[in-house]
Simulated scan of single mutants.
Amino acid sequence: MSSKAASFVEAIASRRTIYSLKPVLPEKVELKEVQQIVQDIIKHTPTCFNSQGNRALALSGESHKRVWDHVYQTLPLEKFKAKPLAARDDAVGTVVFLVKDSKTKELQERFPIRADIFPELIAHSSGSAQLSTWTALELLGFGANLQHFNDLILQALPKDVIEDDWSVQGQLVFGLPAAAAGEKAFDENEVPLLV
């Protein structure tokens, strides 16, 4: 395997879910760098029919805390409140991944015979952006975990920043790792080579 490919696979393989975070930046990293990485990844992530419906917001400081406090306060069951509380208090920021629903509808109208598949394809593209961002932030020294409080996050986002036709796909909570991740366990999943 070439050294570039090996480095890429190593970065993907070392990506981990880190729940134990500190609300600080890694040394020599600024939030502007996080914003630029997210912007570049959203721009360059492939989308079906080049629809370019991926969007993102980078939250930190009071914006980050306000959004997660809303999730914490709104959840009806106490047993589900630990993750938003940790996101609010232990992380330095959140990347909110969104999609532009009008792009999905446009594809459905252009290709009605395949209309049912486009929401899934859009979700695949958003997932690609999420994984790429997660891996890139870990290369900067962050720990991160992916959350899906989508409807509650959308309610808390500033209405002057998001458009009416955006929907939330996931939230990547990030900060300085406070503890290492546990061991990974793998199912057997050998990829056959068919020639």
Rank of each mutant, 00 (worst) to 15 (best):
S3W: 07
A6T: 14
F8T: 13
A11Q: 10
I12L: 14
I12A: 12
R15M: 09
Y19D: 06
L21M: 03
P23H: 08
V24L: 12
L25Y: 06
V29S: 00
V29K: 06
L31W: 11
E33Q: 15
E33R: 14
Q35T: 13
Q35E: 15
Q36E: 15
I42R: 01
I42K: 01
I42E: 04
K43L: 12
T45Y: 01
T45C: 05
P46S: 02
T47D: 00
C48M: 11
C48K: 05
F49C: 14
G53V: 00
N54A: 02
R55P: 02
R55D: 04
A58W: 12
G61L: 04
E62M: 10
E62D: 15
R66G: 09
V67Y: 00
W68Y: 07
D69P: 06
H70T: 03
V71L: 05
V71W: 01
E78L: 11
K79R: 13
K79G: 00
K79F: 12
F80E: 14
F80W: 15
K83P: 04
P84L: 04
P84I: 00
A86S: 14
A86F: 08
A87F: 00
A87N: 01
R88P: 03
D90F: 05
T94R: 00
T94W: 01
V95G: 06
F97T: 03
K100G: 10
D101L: 14
S102W: 10
T104W: 07
T104V: 13
T104M: 12
L107K: 06
E109H: 11
A115N: 05
I122A: 11
A123I: 01
A123F: 02
H124K: 14
S126K: 04
S126C: 10
A129K: 00
A129L: 06
S132F: 11
T135N: 02
A136D: 07
L137H: 05
L137C: 05
E138L: 06
L140I: 04
G143N: 01
G143F: 02
G143P: 03
A144E: 01
L146M: 15
Q147S: 02
Q147F: 03
Q147L: 09
Q147P: 00
D151G: 11
D151L: 12
D151K: 11
L152A: 08
Q155C: 08
L157A: 01
D160A: 04
E163Y: 08
E163W: 07
D165C: 05
W166T: 05
V168A: 05
G170T: 08
G170I: 02
G170K: 08
V173D: 01
F174R: 04
F174K: 03
G175H: 03
G175T: 00
A178E: 09
A179G: 03
G182H: 07
E183D: 10
K184F: 05
K184G: 03
A185L: 11
F186V: 07
F186T: 08
E188T: 15
E188F: 13
N189E: 08
P192H: 12
L193G: 11
L193C: 13
L194K: 13
V195K: 15
V195H: 15
V195S: 15
